[in-house]
Amino acid sequence: MGGESTTRTAPRSGGASRGPAGSRTGQRLSGLAVALGLVLFLGGFAWGAVVYRPYTVPTSSMAPTIGAGDRVLAQRVDGGDVRRGDVVVFTDKTWVTNAPVVKRVVAVGGDTVASTGGKLTVNGKQIDEPYLADDGLADLQNFPTVTVPKGRLFLLGDERSGSLDSTAHLTDAAKGTVARSAVSARVDAVVWPMNGMLVRPTSFEQLGALSSPGPLRTMVALIVGGGVLVLGGGAYGPIANRLSKRPRTGTGPADAR
C-alpha cells in the first residue's frame, strides 16, 4: 500500500548534566580548586607567621634603603647565620636602648674595618656601597682600624651622618661591636611602602659568600596562587549557571516523511 509513513527522531541528550551549576565534573573540579586554593592561601600566611616578624623602623638611619616609619619583614635567623651586607634586627643594652635596632653588618669576627677619606674598608679592601645616598650623607667620619672580636659584628647605618651605630660606640670595651647572639632577625623586604625585597650588596662577595634570600617570594606565590584558585573555583558555579540560561539557537532534526 502506498500509505505515508512518518519517522520521528528523538532529541539527543548529552551524557553530562547541564544543570544550573554546570556538569558534575565541573562542580568537582571547582570544589577541588577551592579546597587546594584555601590550603595554599592559608598555608602561605601560616608559614610567613612562623618565619617572619614585622617591624616598624622609627628613624631614618637606614635611609634610603629603609625610611623612617617604613614597615619591614625580617626573617627569624640565628646570629651565627649572619653575613656581611645583611641588614639585621638586634637588641643590645649597651647601646642605651632595649628596643630592637636595625643596622647593616659590614664586618664580622676576625675582620679589620676602618674608614679613610670617608670610604669604608674591610680587611684592607675598599667596599663599594651602592645602597648609600648620593647627597653626602653617606660619607663616613674617619675612624682607626678596628679588629672585630670573634663572635661579634660591626654595624653601620646606611645614612652615615645621622646613624648611632658602631662608630658611636668605638670607646666601649667591645669597640662598638655587637654579639651575634643579640641578632634576632634579618630584614628581607620593605612592605610598606611596597618597595619590595632588599638588594644583596655584591661588593661584599670579595670577602665571602652572601646570605641567601629568605622564602618570602615563595610564600607570596603560594598566597597569590591560592587566592586565584579560590576565586576561580568559586566563580565556576555562577558562570556555568549564566551560560546554561542563555537561549539556544537553531532547530532540532526535521521530521522525515
Rank of each mutant, 00 (worst) to 15 (best):
G2H: 10
G3Q: 12
E4D: 12
S5M: 08
S5T: 14
T6D: 00
A10Y: 00
A10E: 09
R12C: 00
R12M: 02
S13F: 10
G14F: 04
S17I: 05
R18P: 00
A21Y: 12
T25Y: 01
S30G: 15
G31R: 13
A33P: 03
G37M: 03
G37N: 02
L42W: 08
F45L: 14
G48E: 03
V51T: 14
R53D: 02
Y55R: 02
M62C: 01
A63L: 02
I66R: 06
G67Y: 02
G69C: 07
D70G: 05
D70V: 01
R71S: 04
V72D: 01
L73G: 00
L73E: 12
A74Y: 02
G79H: 07
D81N: 07
V82E: 06
V82T: 11
R83V: 14
R84F: 09
D86H: 05
V88L: 09
D92Q: 10
W95G: 02
V101N: 07
V101K: 04
V102T: 15
K103W: 07
V105F: 06
V106I: 14
V108Q: 06
G109L: 07
V113T: 10
G117H: 05
N123W: 04
N123Y: 03
I127R: 08
E129H: 04
E129D: 04
Y131G: 08
L132C: 03
A133H: 02
A133M: 11
D135T: 10
G136E: 07
L140R: 09
L140S: 06
L140T: 08
F143E: 09
T145N: 02
G151Q: 06
R152D: 13
L155A: 05
L156S: 08
G157Q: 08
S163C: 07
S163F: 06
S163V: 05
L164V: 08
D165R: 08
S166M: 04
L170Y: 12
L170A: 13
D172H: 10
A173G: 08
A179E: 15
V183W: 08
D188M: 01
W192A: 14
G196Q: 03
V199A: 14
R200I: 09
R200V: 13
P201S: 02
T202L: 11
F204A: 09
F204Q: 07
Q206Y: 01
L207G: 11
A209E: 15
A209Q: 14
L210H: 03
S211G: 12
R217Q: 06
V220M: 09
L222K: 03
G225F: 11
G226A: 05
G237D: 00
P238Y: 05
A240I: 03
N241D: 11
R242F: 13
K245N: 12
R246L: 15
T249V: 14
G250N: 08
T251H: 14
P253T: 13
P253I: 05
